[in-house]
Write a protein that binds this DNA or RNA. Structure first.
Lengths: 237, 237
DNA sequence: CACTCGATTGAACGCCTGTTTAATCTATTG
DNA sequence: CAATAGATTAAACAGGCGTTCAATCGAGTG
């Protein structure tokens, strides 16, 4: 005899009528997000309104609970993929998530996941990289973005900068006790970086291209196979 | 009767002839850096070759030990300030630190500090921000860097991007067990981002300035006091 | 030499952790 | 209705944690 919703994707269900297993899992995501993965099984059980022994009965161990949380979070994000993951920057992605009321605890959980490392963080980062690469490629094709000598490296670089700075900001913002309004925090972040980011993206930082020229020349000399050179690239001054 | 080196800045001393207190502190920095702040007092004591009770005799509690480590790390970085902290980017700073054999454990400890939050992380970040602002200001004065409509915001933005992406890279690189060669890791990071970073810094990303113009116009309309506008800023295409 | 004070140790004390176990409750099946 | 299987609970277990305490060591002082 199998349990009612075993194996189901219960994303559409509302708050109250969930499997106990699902309620424990969701409580764990919230508690882990708010207080970190060091939080004990008993705290999770209390938040879910069940006994400590039950969580191990459903998930085997604390690691099993953690894995179930990771899988569920990844599934939720992939479900919201159409709108959220098409955004180019990590800030845009997290903003999108934090604005939807139901997904708010996910942001805290994701920040914790990156702090703690693990597969979810790496997997999600690689996903952001390929999404960014596609977005940049589209922009180049449309003529709104400049082409790069190494599009893959540029996508990884921009994704790393965006996600890294966002996480750094959220960690620092979230470290002083009490629950955080992630939507508001990300909005503040966006406000603060909007101007300098656009300045950098449209005007650059250097007044001449000597640094870039040096690296391009050096690469053309040492490794002639991996990099595409199109030396007809337009100078910007 | 006071102990021999109590209150001294023993930065110049070599490995063996240190106060026991200093040896425990250094062992703690290493162990915390390698295994995180969750590591027990007993492990630190074992690494220092002393009994668990002794560390609390010298530092009062584990929190006291942590504070002593933070203070010492901050002191070490400030001592190396002349060379290290004048670098504009966080990558440069950490590269500088990781290359000096003696400071290698510091990098791991710093990464852990940022993961865990706390005063050291915030304090160091603010220090990087003001250093970056000074560096950018010098570059603008020398004519090698473009001026910004909001130099403080640009400095904070660039510092956040640099430090954030570096930390993200190092966390992901360092999460698979065993000690990490931080110098090599940072060098790989530098290699990977060099080209796209210089591309972005000299040529920008957008082909026109419509996005930037929109934000600049909007800011000029809503808030006329905090931002300096010099509308004679040069367009780059 | 006797004394004293800090360094140092090993063991102990609660406390909290993850996990296990036996018993109870619930509800579906034959 | 009786039986059975799963959900659920309270309690206990072993282990690690930070911390404390009494005892020992070692050297400098009167």
């Amino acid at each position: 005899m199998r349990s009612a919703l075993e194996g189901h994707t219960d994303s559409g269900a509302r708050d109250r009528d969930l499997t106990t297993r699902a309620r424990v899992r969701d409580a764990a995501i919230t508690v882990f997000g708010e207080q970190g993965f060091g939080t004990g099984v008993r705290a999770v059980a209390a938040a879910a309104g069940v006994s400590p022994g039950l969580v191990n009965h459903h998930f085997g161990s604390k690691d099993g609970l953690r894995e179930a949380c990771d899988e569920h979070v990844l599934a939720l994000i992939r479900a919201a993929k159409t709108e959220a993951l098409t955004r180019p920057s990590a800030t845009g992605l997290l903003q999108q998530l934090a604005d939807v009321e139901e997904y708010a605890p996910l942001v805290a959980y994701l920040v914790r996941s990156y702090q703690a490392g693990g597969e979810l963080a790496q997997h999600l980062f690689e996903h952001i990289v390929v999404t960014t690469e596609q977005y940049l490629s589209d922009g180049v094709a449309a003529g709104t973005l400049r082409p790069s000598r190494d599009p893959a490296a540029r996508a990884r670089y921009l994704a790393m900068q965006s996600l890294g700075s966002t996480l750094l900001f959220l960690q620092m913002r979230g470290e002083r006790g009490g629950p955080v309004d992630w939507g508001r925090a990300i909005r503040e972040l966006t406000d603060g970086i909007m101007l300098p980011a656009l300045e950098l993206y449209t005007e650059g930082l250097f007044t001449d291209s000597t640094f870039l020229d040096a690296v391009v020349d050096q690469r053309a000399g040492t490794e002639g196979d991996t990099t595409h050179h199109y030396s007809d690239h337009r100078e910007n001054r």
